[in-house]
């Protein structure tokens, strides 16, 4: 038996909106730790890892570890039917082939339940080791989204370079080139407007903008995004999900042949 009650149901709506275009089908894993998902896109170039810790739920009952295969587009369709202020409860029976999403309006005057068929998904679960990064950039998520959108109108790839001058996003295409430099800025009124660059050593990596733009669909989840770079590793683009967890996107770089 599984029963997870999330008062801030809009978080789950936003999570689904941010992953449904990247991944078609995925297993949601439920354990004492929390509600999690790990899945790769169909080209195996990007990976998404979501964790919503059990403490973040108002009520969290998970009698035994459960893996539920879901079509993310269908799940997003159902969650779109929840109001932004609704409380969302996810319910499933052990060994059952459906999951139920229950939506309660804040005043309890409307209660809806949507039952969705589960599916068997044969997915590979990857071990992601804790890593030291050469550079970690924390910046306003809306700024990062704007940069990715702007650059994708010029080119297909972005070179992200971190030096002591700041972080530079560059692209080139048929019509020309573009460079956007963001410098560290911690003298801001609101902490969410800060740009913080922690650099161990300079790093420069190339990525497909199509994926970066897809990751920025998570922008409504968090005012800040963290971009962790190392020449030996995929970039990690992380958005915090309120106080309860994170959604991390991993993207393998493009290398010169």
């Amino acid at each position: 038996m599984l029963e997870l009650r999330l008062v801030q149901g809009s978080l789950l709506k936003k999570v689904l909106e941010s992953v449904k275009d990247l991944v078609n089908d995925a297993n949601f894993d439920c354990s004492a730790t929390g509600f999690s998902l790990q899945a790769m896109d169909s080209s195996h170039v990007a990976l998404v890892a979501l964790l919503l810790r059990s403490e973040g739920f108002e009520h969290y009952r998970c009698d035994r570890n459960l893996s539920m295969g879901m079509n993310l587009n269908n799940m997003a369709k159902m969650l779109k039917c929840a109001g932004n202020d609704d409380i969302v409860t996810i319910k499933a029976d052990d060994g059952g082939d459906t999951v139920t999403f229950m939506f309660e309006s804040p005043t309890q005057d409307k209660i809806a339940d949507f039952e969705m068929k589960l599916m068997d998904i044969d997915s590979e679960h990857l071990g992601i080791p804790e890593a030291e990064f050469q550079a970690i950039v924390r910046m306003p998520s809306a700024e990062f989204a704007r940069i990715c959108k702007d650059l994708s109108s010029i080119g297909d790839t972005v070179v992200i370079s971190v030096t002591k001058e700041g972080v530079k996003f560059s692209t080139r295409g048929d019509i020309g080139t573009a460079n956007i430099v963001c410098r560290q800025n911690t003298t801001v009124d609101k902490p969410e407007d800060a740009t913080v660059i922690e650099m161990q050593e300079p790093v420069s990596l190339t990525f497909a903008l199509r994926y970066m733009n897809s990751f920025t669909k998570a922008t409504p989840l968090s005012n800040q995004v963290t971009i962790s770079l190392s020449s030996e590793l995929p970039v990690v683009v992380e958005y915090k999900v309120a106080e309860m967890g994170y959604i991390r996107f991993y993207l393998a770089p493009k290398l010169e042949e």
Binding site: M40, H44, L126, G127, T157, P234, L255, E256, E257
Partner: peptide, 14 residues
């Protein structure tokens, strides 16, 4: 020309 690496080249299956 750039070669797009795959995630599986970095992380192993559990």
């Amino acid at each position: 020309p750039c070669l797009q690496k795959k995630i599986l080249g970095y992380f192993n299956e559990d």
